Computed example of a mutant assay.
Amino acid sequence: MSYQAGTALYAFVVDRLDERMREQYPDGMAAHQDDWLAAHALAQAHAEAVSSGNEGEADEFLRQLRFMAEAWSGHRDHPDRAAA
């Protein structure tokens, strides 16, 4: 249980969301904002769970961040690929 796993996934997801927004601009702005807020909330909740020592919650928030990142599982910068 570490902050680094959540931070890496969050940074990866935000980078991909930014790429998607640029590709879909201006139509993709609302979806970008919604998805960015969701990713940010998950990363914040993960960090708070780690800080409080709640491993179960931290794992659940990390799982949800991984679910968001699945859309780009083949991307060369995906944190799970880099760790392998």
Rank of each mutant, 00 (worst) to 15 (best):
R66G: 05
A43S: 08
R76K: 12
Q4P: 00
M29H: 11
G6E: 00
Q33P: 07
A8Y: 08
H32C: 10
A41M: 03
S52D: 12
W72L: 10
H75R: 07
Q33K: 14
A43I: 00
L62V: 09
A82C: 02
G74E: 14
L42E: 01
M29A: 13
P79T: 02
M21W: 10
A49I: 06
A47D: 01
L9W: 01
E19W: 06
D27W: 08
A38K: 12
Q24R: 15
F67D: 15
H78V: 04
H32F: 14
E23G: 03
R22G: 01
A43E: 05
A49E: 03
E70C: 08
E57I: 06
A31L: 14
E60I: 07
A8K: 09
H75Q: 05
A43D: 08
N54Y: 06
A83R: 02
A84C: 01
A11C: 04
H46F: 02
L37T: 13
A41H: 07
M68E: 10
A45L: 04
E70F: 11
A31K: 15
E57Q: 13
G56D: 14
P26M: 00
G6F: 02
E48Q: 15
D35H: 11
H40S: 09
F61P: 03
E55V: 08
H46S: 00
A84S: 01
P79D: 03
H75V: 09
M1T: 05
Q24M: 10
A71H: 11
H46D: 04
N54K: 03
M68L: 15
R16I: 02
D35A: 15
G6I: 02
E48A: 15
H40M: 05
A39L: 05
A83Y: 00
T7K: 05
H78R: 02
A84T: 11
D35L: 12
D18K: 06
Y10T: 07
A41I: 02
Q33N: 14
M1E: 01
R22M: 08
A49W: 07
A8F: 03
W72M: 13
Q64N: 10
A69D: 06
Q44I: 01
Y3Q: 01
A71D: 09
Y3N: 01
V13H: 07
G74Q: 11
R63G: 10
E48Y: 10
L42P: 06
R81K: 11
A31I: 15
E60M: 13
M29N: 14
A38P: 10
Q64S: 11
A82L: 12
G28L: 07
H46W: 05
S52Q: 12
L17I: 06
R16E: 09
A11F: 01
A31R: 15
A82R: 04
L62H: 04
M29I: 15
M68H: 12
H32S: 05
D34F: 15
W72D: 05
A69V: 08
Q24P: 13
E48C: 07
G56R: 10
H40K: 03
V13P: 07
W36H: 14
G6W: 02
H75T: 12
F61Y: 11
A47Y: 01
H40W: 01
D59P: 10
G74R: 14
R22Q: 07
H46I: 03
Y3F: 04
M1Y: 01
G6Y: 05
G28S: 11
N54S: 14
F67W: 14
D18T: 03
D15I: 02
A71M: 07
P26T: 04
G28E: 09
L62K: 11
A83F: 00
A5V: 09
M21H: 10
D15G: 11
